[in-house]
């Protein structure tokens, strides 16, 4: 039986973040916390693989206590178990410290049920780096496979998986030993509307919640702010461009002016000899 772990994160919905145009500050109240949209695809892919081969899907996240909501969302999608690691000592983690903490959680989960496959989202919409997935893979010393847009086969018996990795003008078919870690593209699947029984299960579900002390062999120095090599030194709002010339006159006149402007670049509009 396969054991698949999906790494997920609760994020503020950056689509909804509103900027106050006067003060140029963020109105965070308007941004509700949601399951990172990329991670929903990670969980969905894990569920599909489980449905195909049998097994268990666990989701794991490091985050504040309200992240339980994000875990429940994953149960709605079809995950079986959820683990939240939450502790003040995790706070302020950058990608390096995050991958460290999540790895420790996966190691602990692995003890009772060895993990065959780990799936991450392509990136989180707030961290926006895509670095955590490969980081976890390196720490566990398993192959990371990023940009995955199709899972062809997972063969537990023979210990390999075959996936497609997408790039700009095509894809490559890659085989990797198991366990391995996949970072999946949004295009890998569509997350369907969850069934009512899953909704019910999620509403009742209580995830496992661990603090640092519940994890094993943890080097406290590698956690949170302390374990983060990068620091944010300055935050500013991008300067606004000065603005251009508004053309005047009625529609016809405006277009006339515009035409004379673009036709100055006449070379753009003639054919370069066909090759």
């Amino acid at each position: 039986m396969l054991h698949i772990v999906a790494c997920i994160k609760q994020v503020p919905d950056t689509k909804i973040i509103k900027m106050n145009p006067k003060t140029n500050t963020m109105d965070r109240r308007t941004a509700p916390a949601i399951l990172n949209p990329y991670d929903a695809h990670a969980v969905e892919e894990a569920v599909r693989i489980r449905n195909r081969y049998g097994g268990t899907v666990s989701v794991v996240t490091m985050g504040p206590p309200p992240a339980v909501k994000a875990i429940k969302k994953c149960i709605e999608i079809g995950a079986d178990e959820g683990y939240l690691i939450t502790d003040r000592r995790f706070a302020g983690a950058d990608t390096l410290a995050t991958s460290y903490a999540v790895t420790k959680a996966i190691e602990k989960i692995s003890k009772t049920n060895p993990v065959d496959l780990i799936i991450c989202g392509k990136m989180s919409i707030d961290g926006d780096t895509g670095q955590v997935g490969p980081g976890i893979a390196r720490r566990l010393d398993i192959p990371p496979l990023t940009s995955v847009n199709k899972v062809v086969e997972v063969n537990q018996e023979q210990g390999y998986a075959i996936v497609h990795r997408k790039f700009e003008d095509g894809h490559e078919v890659v085989q990797s030993t198991l366990p391995c870690l996949l970072s999946v593209e949004k295009t890998i699947n569509e997350v369907p509307y969850s069934s009512f029984p899953n909704m019910l299960k999620a509403a009742k579900y209580e995830p496992h919640i661990w603090s640092v002390d519940d994890l094993e062999n943890v080097d406290i120095k590698q956690l949170g702010l302390k374990g983060s090599p990068t620091i944010v030194s300055k935050v500013w709002t991008p300067s606004k461009p000065e603005g251009g010339t508004l053309l005047e006159g009625d529609a016809k006149e405006q277009v006339e002016q515009l035409l004379s402007i673009i036709l100055e670049k006449k070379e753009l509009f003639t054919v370069k000899e066909e090759s």
Partner: peptide, 10 residues
């Protein structure tokens, strides 16, 4: 944060 601000990372 969705491009609303810039941050310098060290």
């Amino acid at each position: 944060f969705g491009g609303n601000i810039m941050a310098t990372i060290l």
